[in-house]
């Protein structure tokens, strides 16, 4: 991934990136909220670029030298450096925020299914942006995954490690189907201290993480549906409930996969 190269940019690269930034502003003008530095330029990058790395280079390289803002103006987010090193916050802070997210969503729905759908929707937006960010922060340029197994492996290793600090437990195919897979996880991060009371039925707050998976796959060009289940393995010794993120890819994706397989 091209690192920010201060002082060694061509004038052309700067112009391209500032153009891309303006495009991103008009496209996303209505949105508030989290916008990773590279997203806007990424969408404006030339098609067929070798990988995410190249797309990021256009955005990241451009406003290279940290421009100091003119007095009274907001420092443009593209002028700020990407975080210098892996920042961390406490897990408690994150889980407490998640608690409130669940409580807030609970107040606005009347069924477990709707609650899970809401959590998944919030997770979707996280996943969409996480993909770009993981690629940008990876030490080496990552290839753009075009095959199903490739992107699923990416999700289960790179992405899971980046977000949750560990790989997901396993990735499995459903029977002989090309379109259905599931990712298993014994202890989703967000469920670390959650215990579901009986009147919540089969609620699994990890639907939020399922939403993240959905967002990532969609952003990578793999349209699909993701549902989160709990499989009760208490009959087997030593294992507990396992969370499963069941992924069903759309027909277009399957057809594309078949074409690419030759």
């Amino acid at each position: 991934m091209a690192r920010r190269e201060t002082g060694r940019l061509s004038w052309v690269a700067k112009k391209q990136a500032s153009g891309a930034h303006k495009r991103s502003q008009s496209v996303r003008g209505m949105e508030a909220g989290a916008l990773p530095a590279g997203v806007g330029a990424g969408s404006g990058a030339p098609a067929g670029s070798a990988g995410y790395g190249a797309a990021m280079a256009v955005a990241a390289a451009a406003p290279g030298a940290q421009a100091s803002p003119t007095p009274g103006s907001t420092l443009n987010i593209l002028d700020q450096p990407l975080a210098r090193q892996r920042g961390e916050v406490s897990l408690s802070a994150y889980l407490l925020l998640f608690c409130e997210l669940v409580a807030y969503s609970r107040n606005r729905v009347s069924s477990v299914v709707a609650l899970e759908a809401r959590l998944a929707a919030v997770g979707y937006r996280v996943g969409e942006r996480a993909l770009e960010y993981v690629c940008a922060k990876s030490g080496k340029p990552l290839p753009r995954e075009t095959r199903i197994l490739g992107i699923l492996n990416f999700v289960v290793t790179n992405l899971w490690r980046f977000l949750f600090g560990k790989n997901a437990d396993s990735l499995k195919k459903v029977g002989n189907s090309d379109a259905e897979f599931y990712i298993e996880e014994v202890e989703p991060l967000v469920n670390t201290f959650v215990s579901v009371p009986k009147d919540f039925g089969a609620l699994n707050c990890a639907a939020f993480q399922g939403g993240i998976v959905h967002g990532i796959l969609s952003a990578a060009g793999f349209e699909c549906e993701v549902t989160t289940y709990v499989r009760d393995d208490s009959s087997k010794p030593g294992s507990a409930e396992v969370t499963m993120y069941y992924i069903k890819f759309s027909n277009e994706v399957i057809q594309r996969e078949r074409r690419l397989a030759g």
């Binding site: 989290a34 916008l35 961390e88 802070a93 937006r125 996280v126 942006r129 980046f162």
Partner: peptide
Amino acid sequence: GERVPVELLALTYGSLVRQVI
């Protein structure tokens, strides 16, 4: 204590704010 990447917090919070809006 255990820690999580700041990006996870930022993205989750941003998504939450979007939802509230």
